[in-house]
Nucleic acid binder design. Structure first.
Lengths: 147, 147
DNA sequence: TACCTCTTGTTGGTGCCACCAACGATGGTC
DNA sequence: GACCATCGTTGGTGGCACCAACAAGAGGTA
């Protein structure tokens, strides 16, 4: 175990790199903490619950997901009986996505898993520091929306 | 443009999600700011310059890259004449990776691009806030290494 | 009416990044 | 000499974001 591991100075504190490295690490933990769900699944279940019955397009926009990814995720969730996909009465193009009772239960379970994940991932940070982090990230993200 | 876009409350301030969203956004900007280089390329060039001639394995460890990804990236860089891959004199298993003059020039160019990218990506944050962010991320990352 | 344009869901891709398994060849150790 | 770790390499996987094209339908205007 030589001191090989010292990362290049340029990279050690490079913000963009820190960001992607941390995100990769976090995604890893989240993926295994969510079991046989993906983040897309959680996002769609949450959106469906909060918005009530909606079209796939609306759910996708709310979650910032591409339409094609919405299709795949709703396929998964419908196959597992967690939501229903019915033809929209007023518009023959679109579907109405509705959460089932099983879907609500799954969502509650996921809520709890997600909550625990935040605690485990951000364990080294205090409550205040987590807030700082979310605020900073939010501002960087908002900067995207504005450009 | 309906108010469809309102993201689910659960997701709006969810730290892990903010992190991956921001990282995705940043990676996008970085990718296009780096032109025909990937982040791996920059990492390897930087490591090769700072460490001097090293084996692929050592460079990979320094950059936190998988060996197989090191192979692919060094292939690219060698094909472009930015580094040389010679058999190591003392160990017939390993190669010695050396930066060429062109490689140093490319690295300097990338350094500048990367610097500008930080400014553009984190434009909404003050100098202090960027430091805060890097410190917070570093601590989350260090938490990984310790577990 | 016909025409044009936008939206919806769907299919079938791409690219990047992280990672994993297995292999032959070699080095170091006992 | 046997054993195991390491090196480079090949050939994958999976997740996430994204894109292009399509047919069907909706909405507007001429």
């Amino acid at each position: 175990m030589p001191m090989d591991e010292a990362p290049p100075l340029r990279l050690r504190r490079l913000p963009t790199r820190l960001l992607t490295q941390t995100a990769a690490h976090v995604q890893r933990l989240v993926a295994q903490g969510l079991g046989d769900f993906r983040t897309h699944h959680y996002a769609l279940l949450a959106a469906a619950e909060e918005r009530g019955p909606s079209s796939q397009a609306a759910l996708g926009r709310a979650c910032g997901m591409d339409r094609s990814d919405v299709v795949a995720a709703t396929n998964d969730l419908a196959a597992r009986g967690l939501l229903r996909r019915d033809p929209a009465p007023g518009d023959r193009r679109s579907n109405v996505i509705t959460l089932t009772a099983d879907g609500e239960n799954a969502l509650r379970d996921l809520d709890e898993r997600v909550r625990r994940l935040q605690d485990s991932v951000f364990a080294p940070l205090s409550e205040d520091e987590r807030d700082q982090l979310t605020r900073l990230l939010t501002r960087v993200l908002r900067h995207r929306a504005e450009s």
